[in-house]
Write a protein that binds this DNA or RNA. Structure first.
Length: 492
RNA sequence: CGGGGUGUAGCGUAGCCCGGUUAUCGCGCCUGGUUUGGGACCAGGAGGUCGUGUGUUCGAAUCACACCACCCCGACCA
């Protein structure tokens, strides 16, 4: 029959790919490495956007939009940043096609339409934005400048995975400018906190906040902060980043302001972003072998009502009841779908909505009409229960918040179970090969050691946790002294 | 870019080694009927540049060469 998904335990990446397709989240496109986000998948992204955007506004930011093309000269202005992205940039060199004189009906690039200066398709927008900020900022009165944009970016990756690493992806990028270092650093940490809260509250995804090592830092940043999450296969996923840019971009783009003493100073910058990669995180954190499992706060459909009927008369009376339920729940701001289609059997629908991760299912059949009951089933635990109709308006909201809470707890338990404190390199390797997960271990602080460990084990330092405790120890690799444990894992 | 692999209906595939009539099967799709409390059943039907090109041959999905695309593994990365 081949109706089920591949099992996570047998082939995790195949499970993931199939799930993305079968749950109608996204498709591979005709362009290598790019994806088509389908309506159901996109509506989850929209939910994420709404929650985040609200937070951004609450923290004082405004949305704006900057162009997708970056003139090469602007792009190369901040050297480190340019260098970091150079290898994965798509470049526009011409602005016109013409019909092929030799092959009828085909087009070729018009060699006469070569651009004076090549345009880089943005892999990130620091360059365009900072060159604009130069025009916007003159005085301390213009600061802080707090801008966010929702946009697409292109990074020509060699290997892509749907949602996790695609050549084009959607994201938001915040870019702020400040008068003082402290304020910029504060902003960096505030936005990291916004991301962490969003991940935990909405995505039901526990994350570890931390600081990136020099090797893993954003090119052009002085300091990069991140939230790191653990997926069910034991691999880590960076779910969001927030960068303290220091004065790097201000200097590169000559963005200065007059302070109150009328002296010119470079402004301090930050940038921060989360992308459609969060979709991948959401999928891999909660879903099971039956399909997607969505936290109610991000589920496009929170409750689905499935009628069970034999005759048209039965369907009519069930529909009446179902519409009534739908209205009652919608009054409580719950998103409800009543699936009265007679094209599929109830069993098919049950499986379908499980595949799509709808948190709660209500079934109503002739027996329920007689007894004035309904059947309610939750996606996360598969618990199924017959309840009195009158209980419905209380139980549904209760179960929805219970699902949200349970998903978070489940993920948190998983993470605890798969976070190891490790003091020997041999054990370190064994853990990575056997079960994966996070490993807290001592590190001597040198990029060389980090690099060696990466080469030998494929594990990287995900971050130096913000709640890092001072603890004297010996580096797991070099044996040199260390002042605290850092977080290692193999990562996406 | 290196190493391996795969291209046959919307999807997944058999056939290829060893060339030979009408290209296999499942899912999906369409029509009709019976069904419907966990992925229904029966009957009928539609759907194909066998990745592209060139060659070998009386004859190519099958053999040869070239090209293209995609997937997996590595180097690179949110």
């Amino acid at each position: 029959m081949n109706k089920g998904l591949p099992k996570r335990s047998e082939n995790y990446s195949e499970w993931y790919n199939e799930l993305v397709k079968r749950a109608d989240l996204a498709d591979h496109s005709d362009v290598r490495g790019c994806m088509v986000i389908k309506p159901y998948g996109y509506s989850i992204w929209e939910k994420m956007q709404q929650a985040l955007d609200k937070k951004f506004k609450e923290t004082g930011h405004s949305n704006a939009y900057f162009p997708v093309f970056v003139p090469k000269s602007l792009f190369e202005a901040e050297e480190k940043n340019a260098e970091g992205f150079a290898k994965e940039c798509a470049v526009v060199t011409h602005y016109r096609l013409k019909t092929d004189p030799y092959k009828k009906g085909q087009l070729i690039v018009d060699p006469d339409a070569k651009l004076e200066e090549e345009l880089i398709v943005r892999p990130t927008s620091e360059a365009v934005i900072w060159s604009t900020y130069k025009k916007w900022i003159q005085s301390y009165r213009d600061l802080p400048l707090l801008i966010n944009q929702w946009a697409n970016v292109v990074r020509w990756e060699m290997r892509t995975r749907i949602f996790l690493r695609t050549a084009e992806f959607l994201w938001q990028e915040g870019h702020t400018a400040h008068a003082t270092q402290d304020e910029a650093m504060q902003e960096t940490l505030t936005m990291l906190e916004v991301y962490a809260e969003f991940a935990e509250k909405y995505m039901a995804l526990p994350v570890i906040k931390g600081r990136k090592t020099e090797n893993e830092r954003f090119a052009g940043a002085v300091e990069t902060f991140c939230i790191e999450a653990l997926m069910q296969d034991g691999k880590a996923l960076q779910a969001g980043t927030s960068h303290f840019l220091g004065q790097n971009f201000a200097k590169a783009f000559d963005v200065k302001f007059s302070n109150k003493d009328n002296t010119l100073e470079y402004v301090w910058g930050t940038s921060w972003g989360v992308s459609t990669r969060l979709m991948g995180a959401l999928i891999m954190a909660h879903s099971d072998d039956e399909g997607l499992v969505l936290p109610p706060l991000l589920a496009p459909i929170q409750v689905v009502i499935v009628p069970i009927f034999k005759t048209a008369e039965q369907l009519n009376s069930i529909s009446e009841k179902a519409q009534h339920i739908k209205k009652l729940l919608e009054e409580k701001n719950i998103t409800v779908k009543y699936d009265n289609s007679d094209k599929q059997t109830p069993g098919f629908k049950f499986a379908e909505y499980e595949l799509k991760g709808v948190p709660l299912r209500i079934a109503i059949g002739p027996r329920d009409l007689e007894n004035n009951t309904i059947e309610i089933a939750r996606r996360d635990t598969k618990e199924k229960k017959s309840i009195a109709f009158s209980e419905l308006v209380h139980i549904v909201p209760q179960w929805l918040s219970s699902i949200q809470e349970n998903l978070y707890q489940r993920a948190l338990n998983f993470r605890s179970k798969h976070t190891h404190i490790c003091d020997s390199y041999g054990q370190f390797q064994k853990i990575l090969d056997n079960e994966g997960g996070f490993i807290l271990a001592h590190w001597d602080g040198s990029p060389e050691t980090e690099e060696k460990i990466k080469e030998e084990t494929k594990a990287t330092i995900r971050c130096i946790p913000l709640d890092f405790k001072k603890e004297n120890g010996k580096c797991i690799y070099s044996g040199k002294p260390s002042v605290g444990r850092v977080l290692f894992a193999r990562a996406y």
